[in-house]
């Protein structure tokens, strides 16, 4: 490492820094400013400053609360489902070296598929007339009439959670598998000799062994699922009603559907605060975890 007082390090950072400032941070400030006006897409030049009017109006409505709740449900659903599935498959794969190469290659499929293709695949999977899911449920005798997964408010959220998790869990598997392989087998052997039960071995050897990587994974899953737009927009357009209207969709609808740029920007600021809150919570969890590990 070189401790430098010269301007060289900053010169090297300049191109990246300037681009990030121009395209991410300037818009961010701009967004905050627009959120204080009644800006409308079609008469933007005559926008007037209205203070926190947009925020007041948004907070007075149940819509925002509902949308925050939907974002939370979606994010929590995706984090839980993709993490548990990912962990389960990682444990399976770690059990044997047979088929590991093949499974690893298969896992690449959902993971490397572009998001929009994933949504279209699941659009068809869930289709009431031609969708294989209903067909299989019919064959099993679980379901008689074609159930409209995406257009019924009871199952729309569940459907997009499943579709999103299908895309995300392989990454969880591959990363947790690497963590599992780092646990020395001697620990299990010693535990077995001491008569530890399967659950005890999992609880006291496996879980601590993959703790850090799990926390990282959960953080990333939370951040990404909370800002995802493609799924909820393409599959259900936030509907039916408001069943899947997560914050990113709500923002888009206000700004470009209703052309209310001011209110859309206020929502953008709110979703930003929401993301920061999530990260903050995780940082606290992580710090507490480290303190516990040290103690």
């Amino acid at each position: 490492m070189t401790t430098s007082r010269s301007s060289l390090p900053w010169l090297l950072l300049a191109p990246a820094g300037l681009l990030i400032i121009a395209i991410i941070y300037v818009p961010l400030v701009y967004s905050a400013l627009i959120s204080l006006t009644d800006a409308h897409l079609l008469r933007f030049s005559s926008a007037e400053f209205i203070g926190f009017g947009n925020y007041e109006r948004l907070l007075a409505r149940a819509r925002l609360t509902t949308s925050l709740w939907r974002t939370f449900t979606y994010s929590a659903g995706v984090v839980v489902l993709s993490f548990l599935t990912g962990l389960f498959v990682a444990l399976l794969m770690n059990r044997t070296t047979m088929l590991r190469g093949l499974t690893r290659t298969l896992l690449i499929i959902p993971w490397a598929t572009p998001w929009l293709v994933v949504t279209l695949i699941w659009y068809v999977m869930f289709n009431p007339q031609i969708g294989p899911i209903n067909e299989v449920l019919n064959l099993l005798g679980v379901l008689d009439v074609g159930h409209s997964w995406l257009y019924s408010s009871e199952t729309a959220m569940l459907s997009i959670v499943i579709a999103t998790s299908w895309r995300l869990f392989p990454a969880v598997t591959l990363i947790l598998l690497a963590g599992l392989q780092g646990i020395p087998p001697e620990q299990y052997e010693a535990a077995e000799v001491d008569g530890a039960s399967a659950w005890a071995r999992f609880r006291y050897i496996t879980m601590p062994g993959i703790r850090t990587v799990s926390i990282t994974m959960l953080t990333l899953l939370t951040i990404w699922s909370s800002k995802l737009f493609t799924m909820a927009w393409t599959l259900t357009q936030g509907g039916p009603g408001d069943a899947t209207r997560v914050l990113s969709v709500y923002t888009y609808q206000e700004a470009f559907g209703s052309n209310r740029l001011g209110r859309g920007s206020a929502l953008a600021v709110i979703s930003l605060l929401f993301s920061l809150l999530l990260v903050f919570v995780y940082l606290i969890v992580l710090r507490r975890d480290e303190e516990k590990a040290e103690a």
Partner: peptide, 17 residues
């Protein structure tokens, strides 16, 4: 932090700019 920002939060000002 730049990576944390949802694209949906920046899309209005980006569109205008």
């Amino acid at each position: 932090l730049g990576q944390l920002l949802p694209a949906s939060a920046l899309i209005v000002p980006l569109f205008l700019m």
